[in-house]
Amino acid sequence: MTVNRTTAYAATTGIPVPRRPAAVRSRDARPAPVVRDLRERAGRSPHALLFGPQDLVVITGLPGSGKSTLMGRAVRGVGIDSQDARDRWAGRMPRLLPYAVYRPLVRLAHYAAVRRALRAGRGLVVHDCGTQTWVRGWLARAARRRGGTLHLVLLDVTPDTALSGQRARGRGVSRYAFLRHRRATARLVRAVERGELPSGCDSAVLLDRDAADTLRSIAFRATGGAAPAHGR
């Protein structure tokens, strides 16, 4: 599968996205956003996503949905995972200290890492918890300034699957926090299914667990180079 500045290409059909009205297109030369739905393909979805050299990619979904696992396995290039910042701070804190106490420090460390990576000007993949919508706005503006675009990769798994993922990694979120994430993620999935992407986002890819497990590469093509082979 190839994702570039003007389109999100998949070997099979995704969700049709309504064209922008002519009046809007006359004021905004940006292409209409594209959504590709790779769910319910029983492992027959693409093995790779390829983005433009200046693009930014946000991976989002429920806590425990597999975002960190996907990033660790598939990202080719720079990836900033908020879980890495949490693990570093957890190693410095007393074992019995609740995460909520030092969570603001973790978030500051994560955003500082994202800011440093943005300065490098290369393609970047960022883990997004899904409830901090201002982060996507920040990244959309950063992508435009550097001549790239923002793309969304959304893991759509059931709450039970996400809770199982939390138990498997030995880390979880509070019931209140999980419900908040669940509502925010459900709203985002429904909006993407309608072709309504977050402001500044040019494309979205919907993954279920099978599609995420099949994905082996999230990469950025070299500046000025031909796009390498993609898909299965």
Results as ranks from 00 to 15, higher is better:
residue 161 T to E: 15
residue 168 A to H: 15
residue 107 R to D: 11
residue 129 C to M: 13
residue 99 Y to E: 11
residue 103 R to S: 08
residue 151 H to F: 00
residue 155 L to I: 11
residue 120 A to F: 01
residue 119 R to C: 03
residue 154 L to Y: 00
residue 128 D to T: 13
residue 108 L to P: 05
residue 112 A to G: 10
residue 141 R to V: 08
residue 145 R to K: 15
residue 154 L to G: 04
residue 115 R to I: 03
residue 111 Y to V: 07
residue 136 R to F: 02
residue 158 T to F: 11
residue 156 D to G: 04
residue 152 L to Y: 02
residue 149 T to P: 00
residue 168 A to N: 05
residue 141 R to F: 04
residue 144 R to L: 08
residue 98 P to Q: 10
residue 131 T to E: 06
residue 170 G to D: 15
residue 128 D to E: 07
residue 106 V to G: 15
residue 110 H to C: 11
residue 102 Y to S: 07
residue 141 R to N: 14
residue 166 Q to Y: 07
residue 124 L to S: 00
residue 141 R to Y: 03
residue 127 H to K: 04
residue 108 L to Q: 08
residue 160 D to N: 11
residue 128 D to P: 14
residue 109 A to R: 13
residue 114 V to S: 09
residue 112 A to H: 15
residue 145 R to F: 01
residue 105 L to T: 10
residue 158 T to K: 13
residue 152 L to E: 09
residue 111 Y to R: 10
residue 167 R to L: 15
residue 165 G to I: 15
residue 131 T to R: 15
residue 116 R to S: 08
residue 128 D to Q: 14
residue 117 A to T: 07
residue 102 Y to G: 09
residue 107 R to H: 14
residue 125 V to D: 00
residue 110 H to N: 06
residue 120 A to H: 09
residue 130 G to A: 09
residue 146 R to T: 04
residue 163 L to E: 11
residue 162 A to Y: 13
residue 120 A to Y: 03
residue 110 H to P: 12
residue 110 H to Y: 11
residue 104 P to W: 00
residue 153 V to G: 06
residue 108 L to S: 06
residue 130 G to C: 11
residue 127 H to C: 06
residue 142 A to G: 04
residue 160 D to P: 07
residue 145 R to I: 01
residue 165 G to F: 15
residue 148 G to I: 10
residue 102 Y to H: 13
residue 168 A to R: 14
residue 163 L to G: 05
residue 131 T to P: 01
residue 101 V to L: 14
residue 148 G to E: 03
residue 153 V to Q: 06
residue 118 L to D: 04
residue 142 A to W: 00
residue 106 V to M: 09
residue 113 A to Y: 01
residue 118 L to V: 07
residue 142 A to F: 03
residue 137 G to L: 10
residue 156 D to H: 04
residue 155 L to T: 03
residue 169 R to G: 13
residue 98 P to C: 15
residue 147 G to Q: 08
residue 153 V to Y: 00
residue 134 W to I: 01
residue 125 V to G: 01
residue 119 R to E: 11
residue 165 G to E: 10
residue 162 A to T: 09
residue 105 L to C: 05
residue 116 R to C: 05
